[in-house]
């Protein structure tokens, strides 16, 4: 269980989050819904350990993982992050992108997980290609496969379906919903699209001006 208590964060004189408290139970599927600039992404990055809070704490199963004085490194949090732009490393093939988080595992297990994910995400034909040689939809699937590969306890999605056409978006929404259900990971899904939020989440939390509005 992840608990956020009194989290605040500012960028210079611009407050991004003000005194946000939130509990994310194990296996919960939560969508953070709100307009641009409401602080959703900042909250997600704070949970991932990519930002340092100005005030408040973030705890994981009772242990503090983020505070203004201490931040547990992102790689030690067992979290997967799916970025808005897929953020695939351009100098690595699709397979290498997915394998990146698995280097601590034996080679055989790495290949086994890779094969399963490539098949599950329907990207086997492009496994040896580089990110600039695949379509936008395939890139999002690779981003999802990469986040799932180490089997994280929590998956964080930062508007992963922005700028996709309707059909592709619906396909990926189903894929994300099914995958989350199968893995049993907790999920925090950031979006400004109510339809997306309803499709993937059990709980929708509305965000506005850096605070939870409902």
């Amino acid at each position: 269980m992840i608990e956020l208590a009194g989290i605040s964060k500012s960028y210079g004189s611009h407050p991004a989050l003000s005194n946000v408290s939130l509990t994310i139970p194990d296996q919960a599927r939560i969508a953070l819904l709100g307009p641009s600039g409401s602080g959703k992404t900042t909250l997600l990055r704070l949970i991932a350990g990519l930002e340092v809070p100005d005030a408040g704490t973030i705890s994981f199963d009772g242990g503090i993982i983020s505070s203004p004085e201490y931040v547990l490194p992102p790689s030690e949090r067992s979290m997967g992050f799916v970025f808005q732009s897929a953020a695939l490393w351009p100098h690595m093939t699709v397979s290498d992108n997915i394998l990146f988080g698995l280097s601590h595992l034996p080679e055989k297990e790495q290949q086994q997980r890779l094969g399963t994910l490539l098949e599950r995400m329907k990207i086997t034909p492009v496994k040896d290609r580089f990110p600039d040689q695949i379509s936008g939809g395939e890139a999002r699937r690779v981003g999802l496969a990469r986040a799932l590969a180490p089997r994280p306890t929590t998956l964080l999605f930062d508007e992963p379906l922005t700028n996709l056409d309707r059909k592709l978006r619906d396909d990926l929404l189903s894929l994300i919903s099914e995958t989350i259900r199968e893995t049993g990971s907790a999920m925090v899904y950031v979006t400004h699209d109510e339809y997306e939020a309803e499709c993937v989440a059990d709980t929708i939390i509305r965000f506005d001006k850096g605070t939870i509005s409902r």
Binding site: R45, A48, G49, L50, P73, P74, S75, R77, M79, G80, F81, F83, S85, A87, L88, W89, P90, F100, G101, S103, R146, A147, P150
Partner: peptide
Amino acid sequence: VDTLLTDAGRVFKTD
């Protein structure tokens, strides 16, 4: 180098 690409790696591995 896009910082997002670095952030994407930091989720998996040490700095």
